[in-house]
Design a protein around this nucleic acid. Structure first.
Lengths: 194, 194
DNA sequence: CATTCCTATGCAATGTTTTGCATATGTATA
DNA sequence: TATACATATGCAAAACATTGCATAGGAATG
């Protein structure tokens, strides 16, 4: 178990637990917030991985009884887990998997009804604008922090900047692409810049 | 079999076969080229999916004997496959999975040696610059096409534009992030634009 | 008082992707 | 003449991810 080189959901979990111990439920929330911008995981997946991490000895837990609510299992990273995390940090990352169904649809757009394709693009525009708005709120929170808070949250904020840029760039592409498809037009210029 | 709603590697393969029949090997090449910019697949995966697609009746193949080399199985999309592909084209896409280990490392950068983190960023910069250069060559090819060729390749080119933008944007982020980490500095302004 | 949502956990089955191996020949390079 | 690389296919096992279900009580809404 856990003998393959790259694994990353496990390490994403270890990173979160290194910052602060928490239950599977907590982790699911935190994935939905911060780290979830660049690594998504369902609660089932998190519970499965916590089990595997326990078996590997990289995390440990204590059960906390709660009145009314079900018990919480509060996980924390172990010294072995920290060692493993540091090892992983030194190893080069694999390039992220690219899997965007929307681009397949655009690529093969001739097979679809033009209106369908346009509404798909509109839907994505809507979603990305919502995502960007949420990121902008978090960014504003960051800039309301004092000097020391900003220093402490510097690295997470740098990853948020990546998310903001990504959403902003995707929105621009969606807009330009939508317009070209609607007008049945060809792009006249290469993508600007570098 | 094949009863789940969203599946996309299968559909990416169907899209390629709709454009032109080919063997598993051919498809692996084509993934590496065009569609591979937004959907990557190893040859093992392609062979597995071709088998599943055959069993579902969405593709069919004939074996072509070759002198010297092993036989090729040339796959083509069936009428049922085309029906399925059109159905899939009308269904909304799931949002792409985000899984970027580099961002986990930046997020948790305090655990790592600063030099390690910087060289990781440099490595990514190098890779992305190479990717961007390759995209730019393909873009130049596109603009050398005549009016009719450009019209025919319009949609694939629009997806290439997405790739170019993405690489360009990532490079900018990598540069700015690298510099901030090197200088131990805080970003002074929110990400510009919208 | 019924319905829905939130907290909190998890199993079982299925589906997808990766990893590691295996085969076989032709052509080009050192 | 070794060695490597490109063509061409695939199996088996493990790892990873998704889907659907299940439990259970409290708090809020209608």
């Amino acid at each position: 178990m856990c003998n393959t080189l790259h694994m990353s959901l496990k390490h994403a979990i270890l990173v979160l637990l290194e910052r602060e111990p928490g239950s599977g439920y907590d982790l699911a929330q935190r994935f939905h917030q911060g780290i979830g911008n660049f690594w998504r995981a369902s609660h089932q997946q998190i519970y499965q991985q916590l089990k595997a991490l326990s078996e590997a000895g990289w995390v440990a837990h204590e059960t906390e009884a709660q009145k009314g609510k079900p018990d919480r299992k509060v996980y924390r990273i172990t010294p072995d887990g920290l060692t493993e995390l540091r090892r992983w940090m030194r190893e080069p990352v694999r390039s992220p998997v690219l899997r965007d169904g929307l681009l397949i649809k655009v690529f093969a757009g001739d097979l679809a009804d033009k209106q369908d394709l346009l509404s798909e693009l509109d839907l994505q525009l809507l979603r990305q604008r919502e995502i960007l708005a949420a990121y902008r709120l978090r960014e504003a929170d960051y800039f309301r922090l004092g000097e020391s808070g900003r220093r402490r949250m510097r690295l997470p904020y740098l990853t948020l900047r990546r998310g903001i840029r990504h959403a902003r760039d995707l929105i621009e592409w969606l807009q330009e692409t939508r317009e070209l498809i609607e007008r049945d037009a060809l792009p006249t210029q290469p993508v600007a810049g570098d």
